[in-house]
């Protein structure tokens, strides 16, 4: 019974995404829309290891007083709950303010799951709930996470959060659960529909364009070309995790 519905739903999503892409091309005027569509995967194409989704963050364009990426992430992923102790709240993406105490130089940048090629969280997860998709996106299987928090101990980026309270009114596309660990998914529900992550879109909408999303394996993608042209940094490069999120300007 559900199969035809699934097919029709997928078909609808596919048509909708292609239609949106067509509109984007037709509209051309806001240039980043065209880039976004070309950066995202073809809807319904399935997950392939030929793709390595990644993100390039230009810290020179990231404004310290801007929180658009964080707000967009929270809205997209239904992170709306309030927790009495803020240390117990979930943060899939957060803004870091860095200051070099010697020179006084400051940076502002978003920190999120770095979607490592060799993710320590996946290595240590006892049940295999922490996993890496073929296209490099690191996820947590909400059904097999037992909430042991070992992945949080292993993550060098403090990118993971443990859900401390019961949750209601979730986004159906982004299941979350009390007692489970969660982190940035690169908005996998959007990427699989050919869209870009909500944070990247919000950054562009705020006219900062500090975040670029795309396929690091595709030499024609903007991100691959930028990474090839400018010096980028992997946070904790000493750990040799080959992260999917690169920073420029730090």
């Amino acid at each position: 019974m559900t199969e035809p519905n699934d097919k029709s739903r997928r078909g609808f999503l596919g048509v909708a995404a292609v239609g949106a892409a067509g509109l984007g091309v037709a509209a051309i005027a806001p240039g980043f829309h065209l880039i976004e569509v070309s950066q995202a995967g073809a809807p319904g194409a399935g997950v392939s290891n030929k793709v390595r989704w990644g993100m390039l963050i230009d810290t020179t364009k990231c404004a310290s007083d801007c929180n658009a990426c964080v707000k967009a992430c929270n809205t997209e992923n239904g992170i709306t709950e309030t927790v009495k102790d803020p240390r117990q709240g979930s943060q899939w993406i957060r803004k870091l303010d860095l200051k070099d105490p010697k020179s006084g130089l400051t940076h502002s940048l978003p920190m999120l799951c770095q979607h490592c090629e060799h993710p320590p969280c996946v290595d240590v997860c006892p049940t295999g709930a922490s996993m890496k998709r073929a296209d490099g996106i690191v996820l947590v299987d909400r059904h097999t996470c037992i909430g042991c928090r070992y992945c949080m101990l292993a993550c060098p980026y403090k990118a993971r959060s443990f859900v401390h309270i019961p949750l209601t009114e979730q986004n159906p596309e982004v299941p979350r659960g009390q007692g489970c660990v969660e982190s940035c998914t690169f908005c996998v529900q959007r990427v699989d529909k050919g869209q870009i992550p909500a944070c990247v879109e919000a950054c562009a909408n705020a006219e900062h364009n500090a975040m670029l999303f795309g396929d690091l394996n595709d030499p024609n993608s903007e991100i691959a070309q930028r990474v090839a042209q400018v010096k980028t940094t992997q946070v904790r490069a000493d750990l040799k995790l080959n992260v999917g999120v690169r920073y420029q300007g730090i």
């Binding site: 997860c125 006892p126 049940t127 295999g128 037992i146 042991c148 009390q178």
Partner: peptide, 25 residues
């Protein structure tokens, strides 16, 4: 103390052998 103590059977049936926790299972 697990976040999902009710899933303790999953810990016994889904063992990730790259995990030291998994070894402990």
């Amino acid at each position: 103390d697990l976040g999902r103590a009710d899933r303790v059977l999953i810990a016994a049936t889904h063992v990730n052998l790259t995990s030291v926790f998994g070894w402990n299972m």
